[in-house]
């Protein structure tokens, strides 16, 4: 759980998921910053790449992350109707459905890819999102694609 005590420690040798988070500058990145200001504690497994808008996210970025061995990919942007660039998040969400289908077709759990909507004022929600994403990927275990690519 995200909270002020912080997440429980993992046992020695337990699976540490490698998750990449691609965040839009205006909502989710700012929301993640707000979580910091509020000292909301969450697991440290997600590494962040900042883009101006989720609309920038080429499906190839996601596929590249999975073929590089990511156990999970998180895309996070503004709420629908709140995009700083009017509609980039709709376009990102549409592309995401395609990529999810593709993942299923190649035998990868589509739950490893997730899109969330966190606004610049939702620091606490960001903590929840990360906690939740990490938990989901932990339950799924290491990416079979990562194993295959070794």
């Amino acid at each position: 759980m995200a909270g002020h005590e912080g997440p429980p420690k993992r046992e020695e040798g337990a699976f540490k998921p490698k998750i990449i988070g691609i965040l839009c500058n205006w909502c989710s990145y700012a929301g993640a910053d707000l979580a910091g200001g509020g000292r909301i504690q969450y697991p440290p497994d997600v590494r962040v790449v900042r883009v101006m808008c989720t609309g920038r996210i080429d499906p190839l970025f996601i596929m590249k992350a999975f073929t590089d061995g990511a156990d999970g990919v998180l895309i996070s942007g503004c709420h629908f109707g709140d995009c700083h660039y009017l509609e980039g998040n709709y376009k990102a969400a549409k592309r995401l459905f395609l990529v999810k289908n593709l993942l299923k077709n190649i035998g990868l759990e589509d739950k490893r890819l997730r899109m969330t909507f966190v606004s610049a004022s939702e620091g606490a929600k960001w903590g929840q999102v990360i906690t939740d994403v990490v938990k989901t990927v932990e339950e799924l275990g290491p990416s079979p694609l990562a194993e295959l690519m070794k």
């Binding site: 005590e5 912080g6 997440p7 420690k9 993640a32 910053d33 979580a35 910091g36 200001g37 000292r39 909301i40 504690q41 969450y42 697991p43 440290p44 497994d45 590494r47 962040v48 903590g127």
Partner: peptide, 21 residues
């Protein structure tokens, strides 16, 4: 590299995790 808002402030009790991140 954001190592404060998205790191040291949100992983205050996990020095190893924060350092790796």
């Amino acid at each position: 590299a954001n190592i404060r808002e998205q790191n040291s402030w949100v992983h205050m009790h996990d020095q190893e995790g924060a350092t790796d991140k």
